[in-house]
Deep mutational scan, measured.
Amino acid sequence: MQGVVKVNSALNMRSGPGSNYGVIGTLRNNDKVEIIKEVDGWYEIRFNGKVGSASKSYITIVN
């Protein structure tokens, strides 16, 4: 499943599904990500070869 980031500035990509996990990357508006699965309001995603988590509130699913 594919998604597109929708933010005003930037979205942190984290090492796990929650804001208490470390930041491993930064996503910008309109970045395209691969959604692997949903976990507690977060998506596990793949972006630029990295796997991490980002809040699903800022990612829109595209077909």
Rank of each mutant, 00 (worst) to 15 (best):
F47Y: 10
S57D: 15
V7Q: 03
A54G: 03
R46A: 09
V62T: 11
S15G: 08
F47P: 01
G49N: 09
I35D: 01
K32L: 15
R46L: 12
V62R: 04
Y21R: 04
K50Y: 09
T26A: 08
N63G: 13
L27Q: 01
R28L: 12
A10P: 13
L11F: 03
N63P: 13
S55Q: 15
E38L: 08
G3I: 05
Y43R: 00
S15Y: 06
S57P: 06
D40K: 09
R14L: 12
N8K: 15
M13G: 03
R46S: 11
Y21W: 09
V7F: 05
Q2D: 08
V51K: 08
V7I: 11
Y21K: 04
G22E: 15
P17C: 08
I59P: 04
T26D: 06
V62M: 10
V4L: 11
N30L: 10
I61M: 09
V5E: 02
D31A: 07
W42G: 01
F47H: 10
K37F: 09
N30Y: 08
M1S: 10
I36Q: 04
V62F: 08
K6F: 05
G16E: 02
V4A: 04
E38W: 05
Y43M: 04
G22K: 13
V5K: 02
S57Q: 15
V62P: 07
V51M: 09
I36V: 09
G52Y: 04
D40P: 05
V23L: 05
A10H: 15
K32F: 12
G16I: 02
V51E: 09
S53I: 10
S15Q: 08
L11D: 03
Q2P: 09
D31S: 07
I36A: 02
G25Y: 04
M1N: 09
K32H: 12
G18H: 03
L27A: 03
V39M: 10
I61R: 06
I61L: 11
G18T: 00
K37I: 08
K56L: 06
E44T: 11
N30K: 08
V62G: 07
V62W: 06
V51R: 09
I24T: 06
S55A: 13
T60G: 06
K50N: 09
I35M: 01
G49E: 08
N63S: 13
I45Q: 00
N20K: 10
T60R: 11
T26H: 10
S55L: 15
S9W: 09
K50W: 08
S53D: 04
N48V: 05
A54W: 02
G25K: 04
K6L: 08
G41C: 08
V23D: 05
R28C: 14
L11M: 10
W42I: 01
L27E: 01
W42M: 02
D31E: 08
T26Q: 13
F47V: 10
S55G: 10
T60S: 11
S19R: 13
K6H: 13
L11S: 05
K6G: 06
V62Y: 08
N29H: 10
I35T: 01
Y58C: 14
D31V: 06
D40C: 10
A10Q: 14
Y58K: 10
V39I: 13
V23K: 07
N30C: 13
L27I: 06
Y21S: 05
G22M: 12
V51T: 12
S9N: 13
T26W: 07
G16W: 03
A10S: 14
E44K: 06
I35E: 01
D40Y: 07
K50A: 10
E38H: 05
S15T: 09
S9C: 15
G52R: 00
T26S: 09
A54V: 15
V7R: 06
N63H: 13
V5Y: 00
Y21V: 03
I35H: 00
W42C: 04
V23I: 13
K6N: 11
G25P: 02
K50S: 09
N20P: 01
K32V: 15
G41M: 07
K32N: 09
N29L: 08
K56Y: 01
N20A: 10
S15V: 07
N63F: 09
L11C: 14
V62A: 09
N29R: 08
K56S: 11
P17V: 04
A10R: 14
R28S: 11
D40Q: 08
V39Y: 12
W42R: 01
N20G: 12
G22N: 13
A54S: 05
V62C: 13
E44Q: 10
G41D: 11
P17L: 04
K37D: 11
G18E: 04
D40H: 09
K37Q: 11
T60W: 12
M1P: 08
E38K: 03
V33T: 00
N63K: 12
G3L: 04
V4W: 03
E44S: 04
N63M: 12
M13E: 04
G22H: 13
G18M: 00
N12P: 15
V4Q: 08
K37V: 06
L11K: 10
V51Q: 10
V51G: 05
S19W: 15
S53Y: 15
Y58D: 12
I59N: 00
N12S: 11
S9T: 14
I35V: 11
G41N: 09
A10F: 15
K37Y: 08
R28N: 12
S57G: 12
K56I: 09
V33L: 04
N29G: 07
Y43D: 00
G41R: 04
V23R: 03
G18S: 05
S53L: 14
N63C: 13
N30I: 03
I24M: 05
V7D: 04
G18Y: 00
M13P: 03
Y58W: 09
G16T: 02
G49D: 10
V5T: 03
V39P: 01
S53R: 05
R28F: 12
W42Y: 10
N48F: 07
I45E: 00
G16A: 03
A10E: 14
T26C: 13
E44R: 05
E38V: 08
K6Q: 12
K32S: 09
S55Y: 12
E44N: 09
G25D: 13
Q2N: 10
V62S: 09
L27D: 01
M1E: 07
I61Q: 07
I61H: 05
G16Y: 03
G18L: 01
Y21Q: 04
V4R: 09
G18F: 00
N48D: 12
E34H: 10
V51I: 13
I36T: 07
E34P: 01
L27P: 01
Q2G: 07
K6R: 13
K32T: 12
N48I: 05
N20W: 13
S9Q: 12
L27K: 01
R46H: 08
G52W: 01
V7A: 12
G16S: 03
N29C: 11
S55F: 11
Y21E: 05
Y58S: 12
V23W: 06
G25H: 07
V33W: 02
I61T: 07
G41E: 10
R14Y: 15
P17G: 04
E44M: 14
N30W: 09
G52S: 03
K56F: 03
D31C: 06
N30E: 10
V51P: 05
Y21N: 06
I45A: 01
M13F: 10
V5W: 00
I45T: 00
G49A: 05
S19T: 14
T60F: 13
G3V: 05
W42V: 01
S57F: 13
E38G: 04
F47S: 05
G52N: 01
E44Y: 10
I35W: 01
V7L: 06
G3P: 01
I61Y: 03
G25E: 12
G16H: 02
I36E: 02
N12Y: 12
R46W: 10
I36R: 03
I61D: 04
D40I: 03
Q2R: 12
S57I: 14
Q2A: 11
V5Q: 01
K37E: 07
Q2M: 15
N12V: 14
N48L: 09
G16F: 02
K6D: 05
N48K: 12
Y21P: 03
V7E: 03
L11Y: 02
I59H: 01
M13Q: 03
K32D: 04
T26F: 09
D31M: 06
A54R: 01
K32A: 10
D40V: 04
R14P: 03
N30D: 11
L11T: 11
K50L: 15
V51W: 07
W42A: 01
S55K: 15
M1A: 10
V51Y: 10
M1Q: 11
N63A: 13
G41A: 06
F47G: 02
R14D: 03
D31K: 01
V33M: 03
F47K: 03
N8T: 13
V39Q: 10
N63Y: 10
R46V: 13
I45H: 00
I36H: 03
G18N: 06
N29I: 07
A54E: 02
M13T: 03
V7K: 10
N48T: 05
K32R: 14
G52L: 02
A54T: 07
E34R: 06
V4N: 03
R14K: 06
V5H: 02
S19N: 14
E38S: 07
R46G: 04
